[in-house]
Design a protein around this nucleic acid. Structure first.
Lengths: 267, 267
DNA sequence: AGTGTTATTATGTACGTACATATTATATTT
DNA sequence: AAATATAATATGTACGTACATAATAACACT
């Protein structure tokens, strides 16, 4: 900082060059000196300090906070470090940043819940339950109109219609009804979908560029109730997913969860 | 700016110094030369190129990808740039990175759906509908046991019990039942909760450090059905939220959405 | 063969400099 | 006063260097 320093040449040189093998003495010392765990003048510290000031209402929603250079100076680190911290906080919705206008505490902190959507098998096994899977039905046929609309394919498209049941500790957990475009992923015709679920097969073999997911509550139909071993009109949690590779619709699925299912997330 | 640069020395100097006012000629040229939009040798390009290779299955799930220095060389940028791109992709679940072990394409791409959880008012207004809000009930009382457990407070805690209804275009949209710890946010006692929803008031005045959210499907009770102007045993989408400031429970809420509600997200 | 120690290595991150870009603020012209 | 050009400024990002850290690989030793 303060620039010029005509003789110093390369930026961080003063730290490591002259003093040969000595421990760096500048900002780094503060970081290394404290004993135990994560006490460093790093970007995480900056993030935490900023968060602290927001939570203590030292900086209130709508307030403009000091500019990067000022914060960097105050906290004893480089602007890049402050930048990284503030960038993360902005991405999480705590801050609003605009060039020239500066950085403000978000007035409507749109909290971004990060929903991990894992493969069902891993979700179940992750809870220490035994996963099982059964293929109920699999057939190649032309899709109904609403699926065509969803995926943006023509009605004569060659598709695979699959229904299957996922079980946790032997109990029905999720009922999956899925349409897969054979044109988009020809190899699935050869896959043994009684061994591996279509869900998991697709994750491994058909990466997508665009996906859409929606969550809602529905009543169990007769069939669905029988399969999930519950009663008609039970409230079911429904996830509908559609994925595309470029413009080509790959698959569209309805995932119906047994009563009592809760999807969790921390913010 | 630029200042000084007496003998060049400083790292990127070669770019700008010698050729005076000319356009930088090295890596930057490739960036600036193409005509239209976002063609740059920046971290976004790196990210896109890596994503492309994943989608084209040039790099398959489980594969180890080149190390940062190699990619940087191949793509003509600094390692820091590659690092940023790969870091983002890892955060989104496309890559698994481990020190020394290198970077691999994620075998189970746990897609992280970013669920924006806005203030209800903004959600409704964002769709161009008219938002309205009615306070149904508000009373200070001691909470029932399950709320105490949720929030980790003692049963004698002074709390505010609030129920309210949010409407879109005059139609019931969401029924909110909420407990707020008055000890944690004393100012709420003075707020006029018939003007501003507790939801929105809390967002503005009670930032939290920890939040928990869960989604499920339930049947409408008699009361709930009446309030949401639907019939008993209708399937309702339920969001349960609890937030803490440090160790202090602030609020716990049940948000019951009218039938037909769908929560959306793109992946 | 098994165990502990020491290199080696790829990612993680901090730093300062340089420049790009989007906005806002100011000056200038009509 | 309104419109337009110009300067100022905060964030955005690229670069190279340096070092930290975690995890593996190689090695020595029993």
């Amino acid at each position: 900082m303060s620039t010029t320093t005509p003789t110093t040449t390369s930026t961080a040189g003063s730290k490591a060059v002259s003093t040969t093998a000595s421990v760096p003495l500048t900002a780094k010392t503060r970081a290394a000196a404290p004993s135990a765990a994560t006490t460093q003048t790093n970007w995480q510290s900056v993030r935490d300090e900023v968060l602290r000031r927001i939570h203590t209402r030292e900086w209130k929603p709508g307030d403009q906070i000091p500019k990067e250079v000022e914060l960097a100076e105050e906290l004893g680190c480089a602007r890049a470090t402050v930048n990284r911290a503030l960038r993360e906080l902005a991405a999480e919705g705590f801050l609003d940043r605009r060039r020239k206008a500066g950085t403000r505490v978000a007035t409507h902190p749109v909290r971004r819940a990060k929903l991990d959507i894992p493969v069902i098998r891993l979700e179940i096994e992750g809870r220490g339950q035994k996963y099982a899977y059964g293929l109920l039905y699999s057939e190649r046929r032309t899709p109904p109109p609403e699926i065509c609309t969803n995926l943006g394919v023509t009605p004569d498209n060659d598709m695979l219609h699959i229904t299957s049941l996922h079980l946790a500790d032997g109990k029905p957990y999720m009922f999956e009804e899925r349409w897969v475009s054979v044109a988009a992923t020809p190899q699935i015709a050869d896959a043994d979908l009684s061994k591996i679920s279509a869900n998991e097969w697709l994750v491994l073999h058909a990466p997508y560029t665009k996906g859409d997911i929606s969550f809602s509550a529905v009543l169990a139909s007769d069939t669905e109730a029988r399969i999930l071993r519950t009663h008609k009109d039970a409230p079911l949690f429904l996830i509908e997913r559609t994925t595309w590779e470029g413009e080509n619709g790959i698959t569209s699925a309805r995932l119906l969860f047994a009563p009592g299912y809760r999807m969790h997330s921390a913010i």
